[in-house]
Design a protein around this nucleic acid. Sequence first.
DNA 1: TCAAGCAATATCCTATAGGATCCACGATCC
DNA 2: GGATCGTGGATCCTATAGGATATTGCTTGA
Lengths: 220, 220
Amino acid sequence: MSNLAPLRRSTLVEDVYERVKALVMEHTLAPGERVNIDALARELEVSATPVREAMARLESDGLVRKRPLAGYTVSPLLSRQEFTDMFDMRVVLEGAAARWAATRASAEARAAISAEAETVAPLDSSDGRRSHAAFTAVDARFHDLIADTAANPLLRDSIHRLHAHLHIHRLYFPYAQTGTTGEEHRRISAAIAAGDPDGAEAAMRAHLDAARSRHLPAFD
Amino acid sequence: MSNLAPLRRSTLVEDVYERVKALVMEHTLAPGERVNIDALARELEVSATPVREAMARLESDGLVRKRPLAGYTVSPLLSRQEFTDMFDMRVVLEGAAARWAATRASAEARAAISAEAETVAPLDSSDGRRSHAAFTAVDARFHDLIADTAANPLLRDSIHRLHAHLHIHRLYFPYAQTGTTGEEHRRISAAIAAGDPDGAEAAMRAHLDAARSRHLPAFD
DNA sequence: TCAAGCAATATCCTATAGGATCCACGATCC
DNA sequence: GGATCGTGGATCCTATAGGATATTGCTTGA
């Protein structure tokens, strides 16, 4: 009976960080909006001190910006240039992740990726259509799974950071085409399952280039 | 007369962050060492509050680790595996940086990179030999310059973060061979100057692989 | 009507204090 | 002798208060 989870006794800072991060991710706190620390502290029923510390961490994540002596604001939406830069980074990082996943993944991991690639977003109960939120959730899980499988913590964290920003952007432009995402995912997954690093990287790069093209019209 | 620097009125948190970061980078605070917040606050002649906020930022940088309710410790030295992972990341990120620098750099930037590649570490005044510190400083400037030239803020920040950890490691193993570093740098610079993205990326990857090989014996 | 200057308010930033938790050391028991 | 338990001290974490700064709105003048 070893290797138990470290039993996280939480501090308020931790909880506040998670809560505020969620507020930003679900755009209850909108991009560009000012964040009043005192008001936020009252809302969460804590004092300002742990809130300030949590905000410092969020700033390092790039989710909020700080102006000294003038408070925090939620990071504004990505400009077209920033969005392009982000996808350039994704191509580089996730391309490498796919490559390494193809060489390093365990049999279980390959199976998990294949399963995720076959997953189809569930139908929305209200209107019977596939919701945008459900689609992005499936997409995010697929990409995060590959990032995890690449077995490089630095790479994994970098990719996760980028995905947070992508998630925020998607919430504001929920009309991007789904296109051939499913098929592209299956191609990536097939290459990883086959242990083909070149093919996996190429498929991932192609997928991300296509995804970028699907998103770019939102900036017109 | 526009475009003046925003005139950073600093807050204590900013100053403390820079000071503590320097303490870690120059290993006045040694890897693995516990960081007593109250003692550090007394030392810097400030209260614990801004120190805590600065530590939260340093944790996001990976320079310190936090155990809830048990304080901060300076991040331990990289294991062999972590060191290898870091260089895997460098190959990916800096390879892309070299590629983009080759296509996007202005004439001035190309000249600056070439000049930096020709720079030789100054001789130490005391013993007349090239000091390890001087060599690493020149090396760091060359790589940072390319990262800046790639014109992607996300990429630049990611590379800078990695370099901080590399710097700490180097201070503890100051006997790594210099080898053919100078020549490798000149090869990278030549490809960038020539606007050859494939060549620049290949040269950077070769350089980093060689550098990793020069460092790895430190773990034996 | 618009710009500039000033006052009042809101907000941020830091210091301090006290409760909560962990760590080290010694005592006790097997 | 070695392990377990309990206590004292150190340290962390949070709340609160007050000084410092930015922002807002109004007034004044051109």
